[in-house]
């Protein structure tokens, strides 16, 4: 279970998270939506301890990770897999080495077993046979899928996705949506998907949390949120630009 309690974070006196609280049950899949720059990536990074809040707590299976130092966090992070907005592949390594990274470092599996699991993970993300390529040779969508393979190969219990479909063409986004649903159901993981793509949120999320101006603006079943009468939620869901508010 993941619980955020009254998280506050600012950069250069500019508040980004201003008291964010929510809970995510084990096995649940939650979509976090909100406008660009509203702090979705910042929130996600707090959940794995990549960023520390000024106040508040992040509880992973009941354990507060905020006061932990980097070395204590390593143990907690073995539960997590994270797919970055920019894919963040290691560009000095091949695709296969990227995917094998966590297995090589944190498990005692044989090289043959690692190779088998890497090939399987690349199959799952529909990139069989790309193992020897370097990340620079891949398209944006392929890089994101390698990022996904790297995150699922060691079968983490919690998966965090940062805008997995943003900037991809509709067909690739669709395949990534399906992939996330499959991973969610087959591996029974807890997933947190940050997105501003309504379709992804609707398909992958059991629940939708909307961030607005550093606070949780809405939190509920996808249908409830998308049919909400709250003007701020409506505006975002319908995608209407507001002349009064600078973006």
């Amino acid at each position: 279970m993941i619980e955020a309690r009254d998280l506050k974070k600012s950069f250069d006196a500019q508040p980004v998270l201003d008291g964010v609280s929510f809970e995510i049950e084990t096995g649940e899949s939650v979509a976090i939506i909100g406008r660009s720059g509203c702090g979705k990536s910042v929130l996600l990074k707090h959940l794995v301890g990549l960023l520390k809040p000024e106040s508040g707590a992040v509880l992973i299976d009941g354990e507060n990770i905020v006061p932990m130092n980097e070395r204590q966090l390593l143990r907690v992070r073995q539960k997590f897999g994270m797919v970055f907005q920019s894919a963040a592949l290691f560009d000095s390594m091949t695709v296969a080495e990227n995917v094998a990274f966590a297995l090589r470092r944190n498990s005692r599996l044989s090289e043959a077993e690692i190779a088998r699991r890497v090939a399987h993970a690349l199959d799952v993300v529909n990139l069989p046979g790309t193992g020897d390529k370097s990340p620079a040779e891949l398209s944006g969508g392929m890089r994101k899928r390698v990022g996904l393979a790297r995150a699922i190969v060691y079968e983490p219990r919690i998966l965090l996705y940062d805008e997995p479909t943003t900037g991809l063409d509709p067909i690739v986004s669709d395949s990534i949506d399906q992939l996330m649903v499959r991973v969610r159901d087959e591996l029974n993981v807890t997933s947190v998907v940050v997105t501003h793509d309504m379709r992804t949120a609707r398909r992958v999320g059991h629940r939708v949390v909307m961030l607005h101006q550093g606070k949780v603006q809405a939190n509920g079943m996808p249908d409830r949120v998308f049919d909400s009468t709250d003007p701020i939620v409506r505006q975002f869901v319908d995608g209407v630009a507001d002349a009064r508010e600078p973006s």
Binding site: L50, L74, R77, A88, F101, R105, N106
Partner: peptide, 17 residues
Amino acid sequence: TEQIDALRTLATHPVDY
């Protein structure tokens, strides 16, 4: 390019690695 954050989420201490 967030590769160091990626290292950290893969349970690897950047100082060690």
